[in-house]
Design a protein around this nucleic acid. Structure first.
Lengths: 182, 182
DNA sequence: TAATCCTGACTAAATTTTCAGTCAAACCGC
DNA sequence: GCGGTTTGACTGAAAATTTAGTCAGGATTA
């Protein structure tokens, strides 16, 4: 992928994290990326194309975050993986907010839905696999879905200021123990 | 509050539920409310003023429509109350989508946060009270928060087309049983 | 130099916001 | 109760602004 392209996408994540998908203006994006608006149209078909690619990019980021998990025990690994999205560091927060925005936008933008659905399914599958490894046999698919939904919900509450990260992490930790623990 | 004003706000909720906060056009709102665009500026300072009032309005609605529960058993009552937001009827869907939009908007609009926080807290308290009645003694506040977050997450997934209502209800029902049941 | 990358300047369309003015009802001194 | 006056609710139309998207051509690099 071209250097410029990623430069623009990185800027897009920043803008989305700051103003939302709703607030993403091509003009502002150009300024943030330090390029002209025309260049954006050179690299992407249109605004919606930027959004789509940004979604991929965000998704990619999220995946790479979750790949850093080291724990040996699958249950611990699962917990670590889920908790990764609830970390108050600039990178994670930015990505998590952007990701939340894309989910929220998909409610009204049907074009985003398919991509979102695929990622969501993938994520569920990953969690389900870990649950399996951890020896959970009682409908692990449902538990997986429960947990991923919970992370999304906690994430949104955190970003909208209705809960602290610490509390969110506490709820999630406890949930893993209750739903998947022994 | 003037009759016209509420008429406009009601229309705003409908428009927001259909097109989202970002998709609210003053013009379309006027048509939906059956008034002229100028009247909107007569009653509200500007577009952003309408949005703000509309989101307050939605916030109010969200509180009032959870009160209709009838079941005798507190656990059943709890389940009914939580499931209320996961019903595929026009009224509920509209309200639920609008409420989701409010939450999503609060991520970027700090003015909305206080109102949202209050409602969320109230909701948690209601659920916690029912858990108490149901004989849950092990950190009911945390369980309450877990459940309300879960409803929000499921709601958003449903509206963005990543899950069916039926599946969402299944997950929630099971969650209530697991977390609060015997 | 030819392909690729990139920009300033621009346009068309969409959208918000203003404004001059209408109309009906309330108010007031008589 | 009655002309005259003020006020609040409301509108049509147009101005002002915002925003996505285009295009002709300049720079860069292979």
């Amino acid at each position: 992928m071209s250097k410029r392209r990623t430069q623009i996408l990185r800027a897009a994540v920043r803008v989305i994290a700051q103003d939302g998908v709703r607030g993403l203006r091509v003009d502002k994006l150009a300024t943030e990326a330090g390029v002209s608006t025309a260049l954006i149209y050179y690299h992407f078909k249109d605004r919606s194309g930027v959004l789509h690619s940004a979604l991929d990019h965000i998704n990619h980021n999220a995946l790479s975050y979750t790949a850093i998990t080291l724990a040996a025990d699958p249950l611990e690994q699962l917990q670590e993986m889920l908790l990764l999205e609830l970390q108050d560091t600039d990178d994670v927060r930015e990505n998590s907010i952007a990701w939340g925005e894309l989910r929220a936008s998909a409610v009204f933008d049907h074009d985003l839905r398919e991509a979102l659905r695929a990622t969501t399914r993938q994520r569920n599958a990953d969690v389900e696999a870990l649950l399996h490894q951890a020896g959970v046999t009682d409908d692990p698919a449902l538990t997986a879905e429960h947990l991923t939904v919970l992370v999304e919900g906690l994430s949104e509450r955190w970003h909208s200021g209705s809960i602290t990260v610490e509390r969110a992490r506490e709820i999630l930790t406890r949930a893993v123990r209750t739903l998947a623990g022994q």
